[in-house]
Amino acid sequence: MRLSFYQYLMTQKNPSGADEVEQFANNAALDQAFPKQSQDFEEISHYLEENAMYLPSMTIFDTAWQRYLSKMN
Rank of each mutant, 00 (worst) to 15 (best):
M1T: 10
R2A: 13
R2D: 12
S4M: 09
S4A: 10
F5R: 02
Y6P: 08
Q7F: 00
L9P: 06
L9K: 03
M10S: 09
T11M: 15
T11K: 15
T11R: 14
K13T: 15
K13R: 15
N14G: 03
S16I: 07
G17A: 04
D19T: 02
D19I: 05
D19Q: 10
D19F: 08
E20K: 12
E20G: 00
V21W: 04
V21S: 04
F24A: 05
F24S: 05
A25F: 03
N26H: 04
N27S: 14
N27D: 09
A28M: 08
D31T: 07
Q32W: 01
A33F: 10
F34S: 09
S38E: 07
S38V: 07
D40Q: 11
D40T: 08
E43G: 02
I44E: 03
I44R: 01
S45H: 13
H46L: 12
Y47M: 11
E50F: 03
A52W: 02
M53E: 15
M53F: 13
M53A: 14
P56Q: 10
M58Q: 12
I60F: 05
I60C: 06
F61T: 02
F61C: 01
F61A: 02
T63E: 13
W65G: 07
Q66T: 09
Y68T: 10
Y68K: 08
N73C: 08
N73W: 09
